[in-house]
Design a protein around this nucleic acid. Structure first.
Lengths: 336, 336
DNA sequence: GCCTGTCGGTAACGCGTGTAACCTGGAGGG
DNA sequence: CCCTCCAGGTTACACGCGTTACCGACAGGC
């Protein structure tokens, strides 16, 4: 009960041992149910009682230091970059990994380059790193992780990186799909929204590139990048100059951005899909709520269980089974 | 260059020492720029070169084990429970803490009770725990953290908990504000949406309670809890039976839920605010985009810098400066 | 009485670090 | 020549834990 007001030292297994009147080894045997060593029922009870009384909790770092491997899974991701789409997916993945005995942790830092990012992750000595924006991983970064003893590096990425097991996640396909759809609806001047919000560029750039490739193939269409922030002001300004831009189709990066832009366009008297066709992405709940309902690109992700199993295999045996990549699907509604 | 295909052992400072031809201590002195000890320029260069060549990254766990304290800040929170509102705030907080030398990490687990949750957090031996849903913290949970040597426990909560430094965050006030507004607009039968999504209950329950208190004071009004999932089907079903419910006002927990409900109501021919007034919360960007624009409760949070400073003071000196709590403000638009 | 097991416990080491304490060789002052 | 001092290195320990090897006591078979 009596908690020290002054810097209470942490309770260690040695404290438990002292209180129970046994050695630290015995405490370890009891608390870990070590099968190789037998402990009498009475001492076992004494140890458990002492641990309970002191509120002992083992020190994960010391444990994995001794064991030579950790059960930490690091997901480098900023909370805001994770859209509403993936957040539920991440939660489920976390539960799956928990059942495998892993502790999953999200960490976002602002890093200048991939290698210093990898260095920061490596300091934590996770068992595995699961990168959602795997395209920002270089092979030097993967090398840093490997030298730090990270057993598995899994990444959603469009291209292979040495030392990284990639799960197909080609954002270029998303942009291409949207652009192809707009072209097939007769649009020729296609704008692609590039969010100014930091952290979204890694996804936005390849989506733009995908759209540009489509334009390059079909000679009739042209693609223009259009910057926009996720604010009413930015959307209103964009919509205000829309007619001058001559754009008759737009891929808005996201359903969130699309909804914001849609509203601003209507306010300025630009009709959708009459004057301009709008396509979002992620197929969020709000997409269907828009006026007109929003055409969007749905992203079918591999199930959390599949990814969790793959990660476990990778950490445990070194060779993961194949995981199906992300498959983008166009959902046609009235905005295009 | 040659990376071992078979379980490459992690690079340690001993490896660096061996390659540089010095002792491990010297390596430590060089890499940490220890002022108390002088190292000649030539050996310093040799050590740095060796570390560079091997790609050495220090082992954070071993370091904090030795140092007796960690620089980890743990934020228990599931990604999906963190609304769009707080996600940007969290990112900023993370940068602030990074400048203070902390590594911030998000962790969500499904726990049966507060104490086992605290135990899981305590295993990581963080310097501090920052709980966003602080109302699920008990004093036993705080005790577990304290005994594990966690220096500071900060929580957004409505009530004080022994051993926890709370930052005022009274969700009951949010519900109360919404209810008062609806009553002042002449509404008498007020529904409060309770999301079925897991993890949101800790916020939803006090919001409901706040609304109920308002109803208890003003004899004219009644409050009913209404369950709803964040899906089109659930919203449609709710809207389909709306007239029978007799509700003429609703606090929809959230702008997201409010937008979904708004749309479903319109589909069923229920007019807003004619038949029913709708109030959301969080003042998300999409709130102003709705038809009609959504009345909402904006939550003014303390700045990330304030919280980061408080946390640092708490960890460093044990006594944090006061941090202003969350202040809910009603934003009136046309949906009520 | 001696050898052989088995049961129940402990001593000791190492994981990767940081740092206090301790050497050593050479320069300088008396 | 001896003592002192300092620069520049090393040795040794501790952090909290898991585990291997050891050890004493006691029972049983010859």
């Amino acid at each position: 009960m009596g908690k020290e007001p002054t810097a209470a030292a942490a309770v260690t297994s040695a404290d438990v041992a002292r209180l129970a009147g046994v050695s630290r080894a015995t405490v370890s045997f009891v608390l870990n149910n070590t099968q190789a060593h037998r402990v009498s029922a009475t001492t076992r009870a004494r140890v458990l009682a002492a641990a309970q009384q002191l509120g002992y909790v083992p020190h994960a770092a010391a444990r994995s230091l001794r064991a030579g491997r950790s059960n930490l899974v690091l997901m480098p991701a900023s909370v805001s970059a994770v859209g509403s789409l993936v957040s539920a997916w991440i939660d489920d993945l976390q539960s799956e990994l928990e059942q495998h005995g892993y502790v999953t942790v999200l960490h976002a830092g602002r890093f200048s380059d991939p290698v210093s990012a990898a260095r920061a992750w490596a300091e934590l000595r996770p068992a595995a790193v699961l990168a959602l924006d795997g395209d920002s991983l270089t092979d030097q970064a993967a090398d840093v992780l490997g030298r730090a003893g990270v057993r598995g590096v899994l990444a959603f990425a469009s291209h292979d990186v040495k030392g990284v097991h990639t799960i197909g996640f080609d954002h270029a396909r998303v942009g291409a799909l949207a652009a192809e759809h707009l072209v097939s609806r007769g649009r020729r001047n296609i704008g692609v929204i590039m969010p100014r919000e930091r952290g979204l560029a890694t996804f936005a750039r390849p989506r733009l590139a995908g759209a540009q490739q489509v334009a390059a193939r079909s000679t009739a269409a042209a693609v223009t990048a259009v910057e926009m922030s996720y604010t009413h002001e930015s959307a209103a300004e964009l919509a205000g100059h829309w007619r001058e831009s001559g754009l008759d189709g737009v891929f808005a990066y996201n359903d969130d951005y699309a909804a914001l832009l849609l509203h601003a366009l209507r306010n300025k008297g630009v009709t959708v899909p009459g004057d301009v066709a709008v396509v979002g992405a992620d197929d969020l709940v709000l997409a269907a709520l828009q006026q007109p309902p929003l055409t969007t690109v749905r992203l079918d992700l591999p199930t959390p269980a599949q990814v969790a199993d793959a990660l476990h295999e990778l950490v445990d045996r070194g060779v993961p089974p194949e995981v199906p990549g992300m498959e983008p699907v166009l959902v046609h509604r009235q905005s295009s």
